[in-house]
């Protein structure tokens, strides 16, 4: 799941300042789940913006709210065509993908990010999300006991811990456990410590030369329009 957090209010206020009619657009998938951009957060942002304007004695903007199932798929964006009529700008509470999908679909409409897209992660408990995957495109979790050192080690090193951990926690974030100590313990438990003793050659960064694309379909010639999403 993509995890994001809402941008500071002042940033959003600054973005919408020149506009009169602003649509606050939530996303019903990832950012709903991480409490950053679902219907409830859209409403909260709306309330906060109205309050900010009331306190500042600022000229009133007209805000409207909507939440799509997903902003990152063109088909869902079609449902917005009527909603954005007369709208001067959109603040998207989707991840960066959603913001860009909107910008691609509505060429004349300014689109602003309302959240900072942070990472791919999971909720470890209510209201706490931890990063778990760096989307490096070269997964080696099979060698590290299912614990990703690239994501969870602050240095992303591959051959064991640095000398920094204190009390099992990372030198940088004392809240986070040292990934390599976790890996050691887990491999020990699984009787697979030899996987850690093995030398890991330097990472292959080629999969993350940007922009990335995955082509899942076979390179057949399309018949009709169903072959391409954006055709």
């Amino acid at each position: 799941m993509i995890v994001a957090e809402q941008k500071p209010l002042e940033d959003i206020i600054r973005m919408v300042r020149p506009y009169k009619k602003v649509l606050l657009l939530g996303c019903g998938t990832c950012t709903t789940v991480c409490n950053a951009g679902g219907e409830t957060e859209v409403a909260f942002l709306h309330d906060a913006l109205r309050m900010a304007e009331a306190r500042a004695g600022d000229g009133r903007r007209e805000y409207s709210e909507a939440t799509l199932k997903r902003q990152c798929d063109p088909e869902f964006l079609e449902h917005l065509t009527e909603r954005v009529e007369g709208v001067d700008a959109v603040v998207s509470l989707a991840c960066g993908t959603g913001v860009q999908a909107l910008a691609e679909r509505f060429a004349d409409l300014p689109v602003f990010p309302g959240v900072n897209t942070s990472f791919i992660g999971m909720a470890v408990e209510w209201g706490v999300w931890d990063e778990r995957c760096a989307a490096c495109g070269d997964c080696r979790l099979e060698d590290t006991g299912g614990i990703c050192p690239i994501t969870r080690c602050t240095k992303g090193i591959l051959n064991g811990p640095c000398a920094g951990p204190k009390k099992g926690h990372c030198e940088v974030s004392p809240d986070m456990e040292c990934a390599w100590i976790l890996i050691y313990r887990r491999l020990e438990r699984l009787g697979q410590l030899e996987r850690m003793r093995r030398y890991y050659p330097p990472r292959n960064f080629r999969p993350i030369s940007r922009p990335r694309r995955i082509v899942g379909k076979a390179g057949l010639e399309a018949r009709g329009s169903h072959g391409d999403v954006t055709a």
């Binding site: 019903g28 998938t29 709903t32 789940v33 991480c34 409490n35 679902g38 219907e39 939440t67 199932k69 909720a123 408990e125 209510w126």
Partner: peptide
């Protein structure tokens, strides 16, 4: 249909 199965209710 709009429930994202985010588990917030389960957790709170």
């Amino acid at each position: 249909d709009r429930c994202a199965s985010c588990l917030t209710c389960v957790r709170v």
